[in-house]
Simulated assay, not measured.
Amino acid sequence: MSTRVHIPIQYLLWFAYTLPGLALFTCVGLSLVKDFEKSTRTHCNVFNFLPSISASIGDCEPQRYIWRLCFALDSIPRYLIAYMQLMRLLNRHHMGLTELYPFVQIGNSCLHFLELTFLLLLTFVSSNEIKWIHECSFVGFMICSLLHMLLTVLIDYFWPRTAHVRLTDQELATRSKRLRWFLINIFSFFISLYFYFRHNSSCEANIYSMYCLFEYIVVLTNIAYHSVVMDEWDQNNGQIQIFF
């Protein structure tokens, strides 16, 4: 005999996109309070006022376990949301180029699944354990994340529709939000790279902290970008069923 549990989709979405932000603020906050010197130390020993995410979750405890627990709990909902979003997008029958559209959306979703997978590797393999896996996971995460966001924005703005279907006010608002978060994300990423290489070349005080600050913004805007899906899904009737 099975038990059926109905969970409103909005609850799942709030959980999936709130938990990573909560984990970030908790781990960075704990590092500032109890592990300030250890988490802000760099190879050239200049003063910094912020820890990197990698230092917070890889070098300090209990931050390491909090971060891994949060992402372990978050991973299944994120994969599930990515799959449900793909199914929703494939049912948009008003989109033009009907033979090509499914392949493009499936390819874009593959980028999203890879992004989530690289994020898991990045979370559970720290730079202190297997550095090359951690670094490759970070590179893979950023490439897949940026490509997925870019392709989604391009589809939102440029993919043809059937002549009798126009954008609704909700669609205009959601695609505008996606574009805004994507632009902030990519600009923050390149600014963080500037501070990272400047720190490595000149070892100025507080420059690494500026890199860390923009690293936080990259993570938070990535979460904000993906959370735009909350505006698209039915807030009243959308539910998922879980069987026990």
Rank of each mutant, 00 (worst) to 15 (best):
E61S: 06
I133Q: 03
F71A: 07
N128K: 00
L89H: 10
R88W: 02
F158T: 06
Y79Q: 12
L151H: 11
M95C: 12
V165Q: 01
S109L: 08
A82S: 14
L122F: 13
S145W: 09
L111W: 09
L114Y: 12
M95T: 05
M142V: 15
L146K: 07
I81W: 11
Y65L: 08
L89I: 02
R166N: 04
M87E: 13
F118T: 14
D74C: 08
R68F: 05
L154W: 01
S109G: 09
R88H: 09
G96D: 01
I76Y: 03
Y65A: 07
E135F: 08
G107I: 02
L147W: 15
R64E: 10
W159H: 05
V104Y: 05
C70S: 14
L150N: 12
F158D: 04
W132Y: 06
R68G: 08
V125R: 01
C144E: 13
I133A: 03
P160A: 05
P62I: 07
F158Q: 05
S145A: 15
Y101P: 00
C144I: 07
L121W: 03
M87P: 04
F103R: 13
S127C: 00
T98E: 10
I155T: 13
I143V: 15
W159T: 08
I106G: 02
M87Y: 10
V104K: 09
T162S: 06
F141R: 09
R92H: 10
V139W: 07
S126K: 03
H93N: 11
Y79A: 10
H134S: 00
N91S: 14
P160S: 03
W67G: 12
R166L: 02
T117Q: 12
